[in-house]
Every structure is written in structure tokens, then in C-alpha cells.
Amino acid sequence: MKTAHDLVLAAKTQCREVSIEDAQAALLSADVIIDVREADEYASGHIAGAINLPRGLLEFKLSGNPALEPRDLNVVLYCKTSGRAALAAASMQSMGYLNVVSIAGGMDAWLAASKPVVKPAPTQFE
């Protein structure tokens, strides 16, 4: 019986990861940056320009958004540590997406490298 870890390892053999050192160049050339973490994780801080499509909804959100349907989009994915992003990349490749990369080490590696994050402004109620 396979474990989640087994599935992630298999996905990582099918997808391309970029190092933190090469992530900035990948982000600059991306048509879309997708944070596949959950909404609360995204709200706690994310990479500038990233949209939030949680891993559990990814395929449905991609299929339901005409702007995300072109299979030749340059896509950069990330999550907390890179496991969900690898699974997402493998899934997108099986859907026919041609240019998908994930950030090795995910948001944890991004933060450890002191890279900038965006946090939404708190909602003000008066």
C-alpha cells in the first residue's frame, strides 16, 4: 500500500522543481503563480502575484477558469514544503499542461531564504 510520501516521491520524478536560487527567474517568466496551500495558509503570507488554488480544488478551478485553460501557460506552483506542489504539477501535466514547475522546498524554503511575502491587509470594520 502506498503512502502519501510515496505518492509525493513519485510525483517529484515526473515534474520539474526549481531551486530557491532559480525561483525568481521562474516567477518573472511565469504567466501564473499558483499557491496550492489552503486559504488560511495563503492569507498568512504568500509570494507576490500568486493566486490561491488549494490542491484539493486545483483541477476543478483550472477547468472552470478560461484564463487558466491554455495548456502552454508558464506555471509556477508552490506549497509549504513542496509535496502538494509536486502532486499538483504531476496532475497538471496529466491534464496536458506543458510548462509547469514547482519551487523546491516550498514556502518554508522561500522564508528561510528571507524572500519577500505579501500579507493581505486586515479587514477594517467601522
Rank of each mutant, 00 (worst) to 15 (best):
67 A>L: 12
107 M>D: 03
59 E>Y: 07
70 P>G: 10
53 L>N: 01
109 A>W: 04
102 S>C: 09
66 P>V: 15
40 D>V: 12
112 A>H: 13
109 A>F: 08
112 A>K: 15
48 A>K: 13
85 A>K: 00
42 Y>I: 06
68 L>E: 06
45 G>W: 03
61 K>W: 06
56 G>R: 12
63 S>Q: 15
60 F>I: 09
112 A>M: 12
70 P>Y: 11
108 D>T: 14
40 D>L: 14
85 A>G: 12
44 S>G: 10
103 I>L: 03
50 A>N: 06
72 D>F: 12
71 R>G: 05
43 A>P: 03
58 L>K: 01
93 Q>I: 04
74 N>K: 15
53 L>E: 01
46 H>R: 08
57 L>C: 06
109 A>H: 05
100 V>C: 02
71 R>S: 11
49 G>R: 09
89 A>R: 00
48 A>M: 14
95 M>W: 04
90 A>I: 00
67 A>S: 14
63 S>L: 15
81 T>A: 11
81 T>C: 02
65 N>Y: 05
77 L>F: 05
57 L>Q: 08
110 W>D: 03
50 A>H: 03
85 A>N: 02
73 L>H: 07
58 L>Q: 01
106 G>P: 02
69 E>T: 11
39 A>R: 12
73 L>Q: 09
64 G>E: 12
79 C>M: 07
108 D>P: 02
92 M>T: 01
95 M>S: 05
51 I>E: 04
84 R>C: 04
85 A>C: 08
98 L>K: 15
46 H>A: 13
69 E>I: 10
107 M>V: 07
92 M>Q: 03
68 L>F: 10
87 L>K: 01
105 G>I: 01
40 D>M: 14
103 I>P: 00
49 G>A: 13
42 Y>P: 05
105 G>K: 00
58 L>Y: 01
42 Y>N: 07
67 A>F: 09
47 I>V: 15
107 M>F: 13
52 N>S: 12
108 D>F: 14
59 E>H: 07
79 C>T: 03
112 A>E: 15
74 N>T: 13
107 M>K: 06
93 Q>S: 08
79 C>L: 08
90 A>F: 00
77 L>T: 03
67 A>V: 08
45 G>R: 04
76 V>A: 01
53 L>R: 02
89 A>L: 02
60 F>C: 05
106 G>C: 09
104 A>P: 02
84 R>W: 05
58 L>P: 00
61 K>G: 03
101 V>K: 01
99 N>R: 15
87 L>W: 00
57 L>S: 06
95 M>Q: 08
46 H>Q: 11
69 E>K: 15
71 R>Q: 14
106 G>H: 02
100 V>W: 00
64 G>F: 13
88 A>C: 06
87 L>T: 00
109 A>V: 11
107 M>A: 10
66 P>C: 13
56 G>M: 09
99 N>K: 15
45 G>F: 04
52 N>W: 04
41 E>D: 13
80 K>F: 14
74 N>R: 15
56 G>C: 08
102 S>F: 00
94 S>I: 04
81 T>V: 14
46 H>K: 10
75 V>W: 01
50 A>T: 08
49 G>N: 10
92 M>I: 04
69 E>M: 13
108 D>S: 14
46 H>W: 03
109 A>T: 11
42 Y>Q: 08
88 A>D: 00
40 D>S: 13
79 C>V: 04
80 K>Q: 15
41 E>Q: 10
51 I>Q: 08
93 Q>N: 11
80 K>Y: 14
99 N>L: 05
112 A>S: 15
61 K>T: 04
92 M>N: 01
109 A>I: 10
